[in-house]
């Protein structure tokens, strides 16, 4: 049996496509995707709220699916495709969900907003929300301390309707 009192500093090479750009990176194995994005790549649009999967501020899209980047090790996602809030707009043109957040005034401090937007896009990709109750339930992983929920729900509802008619 291997006996080592402290694990050696272990770094691994990973290749990640982040917002459309493939990157070779070296990460310490205990680095979360969230810390990689914020600390190493300075993509600070993704927020750290709780760091424990409870608030949704760190929501990103991993291969198109919304996940909590705080409870994910970067090293485990070698080869993955990641979209963060920085990669959602099309150049200068905001993503319709981003635009809708502005139009509906769906935030106050804005801390939860990038997570809410990524989560909304994830919800649309999943295609499981049908009713208002579904929306509330399927958005419950994104906490808003400012309580902008009623307008956030309006955005999601509108986005859902748009995606149905599109």
């Amino acid at each position: 049996m291997e006996k080592n009192t402290i694990a050696p500093i272990s770094k691994e090479k990973v290749t990640l496509t982040i917002n459309g750009k493939e990157q070779q990176l070296e990460v310490e194995v205990w680095t979360s995707l969230l810390d990689l994005l914020r600390e190493q790549l300075h993509l600070t649009g993704t927020k750290k709220g709780c760091d424990h999967g409870q608030c949704g501020a760190c929501t990103i899209l991993l291969d198109g699916k919304r996940i909590n980047s705080c409870l994910s090790l970067a090293v485990m996602h070698d080869g993955a495709d990641i979209t963060t809030i920085e990669g959602i707009a099309n150049g200068e043109e905001l993503h319709p969900v981003q635009q809708a957040f502005i139009e509906h005034d769906a935030f106050q401090c804005g801390y939860c907003t990038s997570g809410q937007i990524c989560s909304t896009i994830g919800l649309l990709n999943e295609g499981k929300a049908k009713t208002l109750d579904d929306i509330r339930d399927l958005m419950s992983g994104n906490i808003c301390r400012c309580g902008a929920y009623s307008n956030i729900i309006k955005v999601v509802q509108e986005a859902l309707e748009r995606s149905r008619t599109a």
């Binding site: 949704g56 699916k65 909590n68 409870l71 958005m139 992983g141």
Partner: peptide, 9 residues
């Protein structure tokens, strides 16, 4: 249980 994000992972 949990949330959509957590259930995906």
């Amino acid at each position: 249980g949990a949330t959509a994000q957590l259930r995906n992972k």
